[in-house]
Design a binder for these strands. Structure first.
Lengths: 142, 142
DNA sequence: TATTGTTATACTCTATAACTATA
DNA sequence: TATAGTTATAGAGTATAACAATA
């Protein structure tokens, strides 16, 4: 049994820890969706919409990594609750633009307030670690 | 308009960046599930099982944050493919223990090999940043 | 011809409630 | 009585294929 073969590199260890961190967010996501009257997929859809800029159905399907026929149903659900509206695009009448209603934006903001809550484990880091974490992630993703 | 009110703290920025990082993993998860012949929920279920230690259905339901009636269906699917087996527990005959078959473990390993792949953005970090990231996450989660 | 979105279809996911077997 | 798991049921998610409208 070669123990060296099973030794993870630092970044592999980091990735595994991040996996745990995000998996632990699952119950929170399920709960907040229910709290605002949405299913998790509907929550993700509303999350991807832009309150300031109408989004074509097509773009939402791409953002959700799913088929456009699926988006039809998700948007039907959101529209039935008055959270989004379909609007025709002026320059291309094939396209339906998704507009977040004021009520939809209210739900969206309440949902985001929970989703964006920093997990306790990260909040308990020292100020130096918190800044270092941000800096490293900005170098990687920024 | 008070711009200070919208300024994120370092850890809030970090959390937002992590959210992006994980959302970007979605297509990969959907693809690897299809590649090994599973749906995403089935993949998560197989992921949570322990190849060395049989897991009660109940524990799997808790790990997946879902109802136990749902686990029945997921395990039915995995069992139909010969990836897991239900076994009775000796000390308590109400409990069904889930055993990963050799074939199930093969699928599981192939799936993990993809899931555990470190995203390119993190791989491109310098060695110092990679170690620092691991160290910080270990302090937070370890 | 190609693209956007919808519909028809089939299957899976999911929770609730009622049930069986066991403790 | 309480717990582990299943079944029945209903509704939502999902992709594929076929379609209409538009480009």
């Amino acid at each position: 049994m070669d123990s060296a073969a099973e030794t993870q590199t630092p970044i592999q260890e980091a990735w595994a820890l991040l996996g745990r961190l995000f998996w632990d967010m699952r119950p929170r996501m399920i709960r907040v969706a229910a709290d605002v009257g949405l299913t998790p997929p509907q929550l993700f859809a509303l999350r991807m919409l832009d309150p300031d800029e109408p989004v074509p159905m097509r773009a939402l399907a791409a953002a959700l990594s799913c088929d456009s026929s699926n988006v039809t149903g998700l948007v039907d659900g959101l529209e039935a609750q008055g959270l989004v509206e379909r609007r025709e695009a002026e320059h291309d009448r094939r396209i339906r633009l998704l507009v977040v209603t004021p009520r939809g934006n209210d739900v969206r903001e309440r949902m985001l307030a929970v989703v964006q809550q920093v997990p306790e484990a990260l909040q308990e880091l020292g100020a130096d670690d918190q800044r270092a974490l941000r800096d490293i992630l900005q170098r990687a993703l920024g």
